[in-house]
């Protein structure tokens, strides 16, 4: 077959082998201080004692996160990048994008939530079946970002509970995937109970 008219291994994207997934997920800085201590605590007191069934259920839940993209603004475009050809979220069972809240269990709030949208967000969150998880993506959704303004919700935790916060404006697709992986690990460790 003919070569591509461009060199995709060139300087636009350099490919390098990374570490194994677990190692990569633990790499980020922000999680850090005290993360390891907390894990030991969990082992001693919490998750270690849960039954095998629980472990199984958590494993299954973590591997089949069906996202509901609540995309409003710029971050939604990056979310689209994540589900399009350059990234492969299907490897983690999270590619089934559902626009109906009844069929989703992970809500990715991508973009600014303004006061006018707040009741809508709340209603859609309430329509999701339990267990439901929420990722707040980007500066606007997590805290209002630089819109300290008369019509912008200063962080969606005013309205709904949030499990994972992703900084960035917008976060890169890899950054968002990292947060999904981290949420997956949290669920599988049984840390998120909802």
């Amino acid at each position: 077959m003919a070569n591509l008219p461009y060199d995709s291994s060139g300087s636009i994207i350099q490919r390098k082998r990374g570490g194994p997934p677990g190692e990569g997920a633990e790499k980020g800085l922000i999680t850090l201080p005290g993360e390891s201590e907390r894990e030991i605590e969990d082992l001693a007191g919490g998750t270690y004692l849960t039954t095998t069934v629980d472990t199984m259920v958590n494993w299954a839940r973590g591997n089949s996160l069906w996202p509901l993209p609540f995309g409003t603004a710029c971050c939604a475009i990056e979310f689209m990048s994540m589900v399009s050809s350059h990234y492969d979220i299907a490897r983690f069972g999270a590619e089934v994008v559902r626009f109906s809240p009844r069929q989703a269990d992970l809500m990715i709030v991508a973009g600014t939530i303004v006061d006018k949208m707040a009741p809508v967000l709340k209603k859609i969150y309430e329509q999701m079946p339990e267990p439901r998880y929420v990722i707040a993506m980007g500066a606007c959704a997590t805290s209002g970002g630089f819109y300290r303004a008369y019509h912008v919700v200063q962080g969606i935790d005013e309205i709904i509970p949030v499990d994972m916060w992703v900084p960035g404006c917008p976060p890169t697709p890899d950054g968002l995937m990292y947060s999904i992986l981290k949420l997956k690990e949290k669920i599988q460790r049984g840390e998120v109970r909802r």
Partner: peptide, 11 residues
């Protein structure tokens, strides 16, 4: 409309 009114002009 206005579900994404982020107050650009006031900001």
């Amino acid at each position: 409309i206005g579900y994404l009114h982020r107050c650009f002009e006031k900001m």
